[in-house]
Amino acid sequence: MSTDSQKMPYTPPALEFKSSTFSVPVLVLSSDDLLIIEQQLQEKVDLAPEFFKNSPLVLDVQALNKQGYAIDIAALTELIRKIGLLPIGIRGGNAQQNRQALELLMPVYSIRSGGVTEETQKQKTVTPEPNTELDSDVTATTLITQPIRSGQRIYAKGDLVITAQVSAGAEIMAEGNIHVYNTLRGRALAGVQGNTDARIFCFDLQAELISIAGNYKVSEDLDESVRNKPVQIYLQDQALIIKDIVQHH
């Protein structure tokens, strides 16, 4: 027996299958005009270039196909890669689109698991149900007590709370809300994964840019009446509302 074990030494398994869930952005298309898609996607990416760089992406063409626009997956993929994103799958495609995707080595996902995007769009009318999707992975709040200096970048999967100042040229992003209990001079982007209920709160608004779920305002567009004040910023009918934190009745 001892000779056996010498002949065939025990080798630990080189691999193992495990199940894991990832949070991947889904690109829901509602136009088949590649030029418009390119332009609008580029605008979104420019808001947070570092965050989108090499980000994986699943293409959702279901809504588009329902309207009878069958987009060319090969051309679409090429365009998205050019912008610097990495499509890793498709869902809601027709037979030809799915074949195209597989030729590009992109898996085809079934639409069943992903009613989420439609819910997210309807969330204004519903109770904060879509939050469960965002929260299921990470609910943790990120707390930062050191100043965020020019050139620094913070990304929080949940809420982001900062007690120190955020300098001009810094960028803070959160999938949830952003609270800055100090002066906000840099760029603040809340709800970066599409949570339109996210809000930004800050003690002293001097931001270069504020954004909620992709709806943004640059410093120049900020009204003088809201500058250098404690404010909250939220989205209402796709418009950014900036209001005093303390509501006067």
Binding site: Q146, P147, R149, S150, G151, Q152, S167, A168, A170
Partner: peptide, 24 residues
């Protein structure tokens, strides 16, 4: 002032003390 602010960010994130999680 802005360049100094940028440098302070680098001191806080890219120094040996930052990388090894020591006192900043």
């Amino acid at each position: 002032v802005r360049d100094s602010d940028r440098m302070l960010g680098i001191l806080a994130s890219k120094s040996r003390r930052a990388e090894q999680n020591e006192e900043p």
